[in-house]
Nucleic acid binder design. Sequence first.
DNA 1: GATGAATGAGACTTCATTCAT
DNA 2: AATGAATGAAGTCTCATTCAT
Lengths: 211, 211, 211, 211
Amino acid sequence: MPKETFFNLSETKRKRILEAAIDEFAENGYENSRVNEIVRRSTIPKGSFYQYFENKCDLFRYVLDIIYKKKMEMMTDIEISHKELSVFETLRIMVEAGIKMAEEDPRLSKISDKLVANKPLMDEVLKEYAPSSDDLIKSLIRRGKDNGELADWVDPELASNLITAFILSLSEMIRSSNNGIIAEAAREKYLSLINFLEYGMKRREDDDSGK
Amino acid sequence: MPKETFFNLSETKRKRILEAAIDEFAENGYENSRVNEIVRRSTIPKGSFYQYFENKCDLFRYVLDIIYKKKMEMMTDIEISHKELSVFETLRIMVEAGIKMAEEDPRLSKISDKLVANKPLMDEVLKEYAPSSDDLIKSLIRRGKDNGELADWVDPELASNLITAFILSLSEMIRSSNNGIIAEAAREKYLSLINFLEYGMKRREDDDSGK
Amino acid sequence: MPKETFFNLSETKRKRILEAAIDEFAENGYENSRVNEIVRRSTIPKGSFYQYFENKCDLFRYVLDIIYKKKMEMMTDIEISHKELSVFETLRIMVEAGIKMAEEDPRLSKISDKLVANKPLMDEVLKEYAPSSDDLIKSLIRRGKDNGELADWVDPELASNLITAFILSLSEMIRSSNNGIIAEAAREKYLSLINFLEYGMKRREDDDSGK
Amino acid sequence: MPKETFFNLSETKRKRILEAAIDEFAENGYENSRVNEIVRRSTIPKGSFYQYFENKCDLFRYVLDIIYKKKMEMMTDIEISHKELSVFETLRIMVEAGIKMAEEDPRLSKISDKLVANKPLMDEVLKEYAPSSDDLIKSLIRRGKDNGELADWVDPELASNLITAFILSLSEMIRSSNNGIIAEAAREKYLSLINFLEYGMKRREDDDSGK
DNA sequence: GATGAATGAGACTTCATTCAT
DNA sequence: AATGAATGAAGTCTCATTCAT
């Protein structure tokens, strides 16, 4: 976590620093990003950097935190405000929102994608973030089962894994679309995957199997 | 590609060097791995390293190549030698083989997982490897449709995406099992995902929908 | 050009660094000089070196610049402040001044002499410096012709070549006097060369030839 | 001096090695030339290199020796076989021969030009070669004085310096003509310098001065 | 003698972090 | 708190020369 001095800064300055950091991390990943460059881009003195942050890693984790919180907030908002919709309708909205977020600021997606290289760092981060995002999906599934939308055999654990796999592959698609605009094709492909999930999981008259 | 001098070495020495490299890359990813360390672990002089390899990247790509070829060989063998099996049976065997491979040498899986940090390098590598592994899956799907195992609406493109997403999430599971032994739970989870795929894609009497 | 940080240093420190660099370059030429050694001699940390200069070449070119500017300033001063003297008198003063300069700091002459090994570097440097020094000589010649001191047939181009050849051979003499003190003999030889030039170029009553 | 093993080689092989060395030295100068490259170009094993030569320097000095001997032989031949010609006629022929030599193999001129960077090496080399080339010129001058071609005041020492200065500047011209073909302009300039020398040094009716 | 692998000192440079004002 | 210079460990890579077969 940044030091108190960072939070005492004017918002404009804080923004400037964060923008610079996000740019640098998105372009180069954690390892290849340079404090020098962040400092240059945000036009703060190098000494100040270490007065605001413990070290490079401190800032990076703070940036991750921001990204993660933004994503979670978005997802949770949707989950809460669309309780009347079906599970898959909700998922579709989440995907659309995720794509929109990635289009609005592709840097954020890039940063998480590039996370993987640094083992100890990544482990720490995952331990922190993974559970709650998993929880969100599971609670969505549970609602679907309570509603009778989903077949009885559907296991929340299983479904959550499926959906997480999808989210990962979404990131991949976004990452590989180099211009920052998600091609329409990618969106369609994505929605068809949800169709498939729906087709496979929805309750049927002759509900007998799955496993 | 390593230089000729490398291939002229005794097998024991070549192995020693590769083992050292794989260890280092698996532990630290490409960026954080040090030639110095590889050289120390394999007890070769630093000068020799550069007589065997163009540079650090050269060795890394060679290691990736080995991993990739090993995986592909395994997958292709299965695809060819089990033409009598159903698509999903084949997939199950592939998954089992993949898990076994990862259990036998978890370092190999780790290396590919940590690839992502270096964008230009990764792009190059993907361009080289992705297509053929995609082809394998697609040919599997096509066979399933020709056999009448798969529903008519199943799009090879879509299915290949689904399966690739699964493979990604498999890697993830393996990676997160830090002790090197894939928990039995992970295997079960995995197989249940294939069950789901089968359930969703198989041809039915009343085959009408999906999309 | 050195970075701003270099010019912000105290003069003593800047001098110390330059002295160390000049020593090293004079003794070993560009190729054989080591940043390590410059850093050791000036007792600055290696990291500082790269905070002051882009790289080894940057410092070298800066040193050349200093030498060149010093020489040009000296020569130009003489040319301007002795307009009443004959061309050859001026040349004699220049030579004396050049010798004195070389005696005061023989390292400077040595550095330019050793420049030649690195072709691309040298070409760049020559492109930068040669023209203006050529101009100085030519303007001197032109004045001589306007004055009627020089024979009509004397071609500024030719004369400038002659004189440049002399300056080269002067450098050579200085370089080969390894103790740093220009032997009196060398000076005399030098002046006799100018005598010869004067004898050959001065206007005569029966001015008919040359070419 | 190369070892006996070198001189025992077949002429074709010896030539091949020398050609490779001359290429490398001409392109890069002594410091920047690599034994590796010479070995590669001449397709001899690296081990053989050190069986033929003491070390890199040994080969370099041998190459210098060849160049120098070639030049001296050419100059001496001219001096001997044209005793009937005037001093300056002889010089003109020498210059033409020198230019032709440089045109036929510009690499040779380049090598001597790039010599200067390595102080101890150069000093040694100069000590070895300079005297005899100086002698040649001086003997030429002496003949001129004995003939009565040259003015009484002409000092052999002085004249030899002058001519050496010219030869230096000739090298320079050749070096800077990057295409390897000496521009016609350079030749003309050169000859006009000799004209000047002749004009300045030749005996006149009213021979009174110079000094 | 021929061969080519082995060797390691040492070159340049980067960069996160600390220090001093 | 702000500033930017100071610091040095560590990185990659080169290359002349020696060694072993």
